[in-house]
Amino acid sequence: MIPLIGSIALAGAHPLALAILLGVFGLLLSYFKGGSKLVNLTSQGTAGGLLIFLGFTGTMSQIGSIQEWAVGLQSANVEAGSMGYVGLIVLGINIAVYAYLAKINMRWLAIPVCAVTGLLLALGLGAGFDLTFETEMGLPNLNPVYWWGSTEQGWMLGLPNLQHFIASLPFAILAVAMWSPDFLGHRIFQELNYPRKTEKSSDGRR
């Protein structure tokens, strides 16, 4: 649903209305066991295709973000925009690291190892460590009225009305319809990482 955020906003939907509808549909599916029926109606080919599509979309988005970051790098002796190669090197080596971890059946180490590898490579290539924290430390305002009950503070959206619920309804139905292929896609991904002869799965069951 993330790529549809722009369309949802243009349609006049309200995030709180959408969340309420999703909660209601989720409870109804749970009560009537509609989730199991949707899963049975969804083929593994559909789930696998969705998983590939979402994975490809996410990968291309992250590659774009990495290159945008790399092009914006600037050091004392290098002009801005001329360090785009840093992103390509970090990406290429991380792919090689992940392939090696997959080969030795240690894919579960991919996230921490690739994160540390990318950080060390970037620093070694002159990226610099210039993190800045713009948000003040402390707990946010926990009063829901502050966030949802006003058009002058919080998210400044106010409470949803009937028009917002009507505009959010098609997107809520679409989100619920995507739950079953999304579930099957994650199950296929888990089966790829934990073959049939694996003694333990990710949730500890044998």
Results as ranks from 00 to 15, higher is better:
M1Y: 05
L4E: 02
I5A: 10
I8E: 01
A11N: 10
G12L: 04
A13Y: 06
H14W: 14
H14C: 15
P15G: 07
L16E: 09
L16D: 05
L16F: 13
A17S: 10
A19I: 14
I20C: 04
L22I: 05
L22F: 10
F25T: 01
G26A: 05
L27Y: 00
L27W: 00
L29Y: 01
L29N: 02
Y31E: 00
F32T: 09
G34R: 06
N40M: 10
G48R: 01
L50C: 11
L50G: 05
L51P: 00
L51G: 01
I52Y: 02
G55K: 01
G55F: 13
T57V: 13
G58H: 10
T59N: 09
T59C: 04
M60A: 09
M60E: 12
Q62V: 11
A70V: 08
V71F: 08
G72A: 12
Q74Y: 08
S75E: 11
A76N: 13
N77T: 14
G81A: 06
G84M: 15
Y85G: 13
L88Q: 07
I89M: 15
I89E: 12
L91I: 14
N94W: 14
Y100W: 04
K103D: 03
I111W: 13
C114A: 08
A115F: 15
A115H: 10
V116M: 03
L121Q: 08
L123P: 00
G126Q: 11
G126P: 03
F129Q: 07
D130S: 09
T132C: 08
T132I: 13
G138Q: 11
L142M: 09
L142V: 07
Y146W: 06
G149C: 12
S150H: 04
T151G: 05
G154Q: 13
L159I: 06
N161G: 14
F165S: 04
L169M: 00
P170Q: 01
A172K: 01
I173S: 05
A177H: 02
F183D: 02
R187H: 03
F189M: 08
P195G: 14
R196E: 08
K200Q: 13
R206N: 07
R206G: 15
R206I: 02
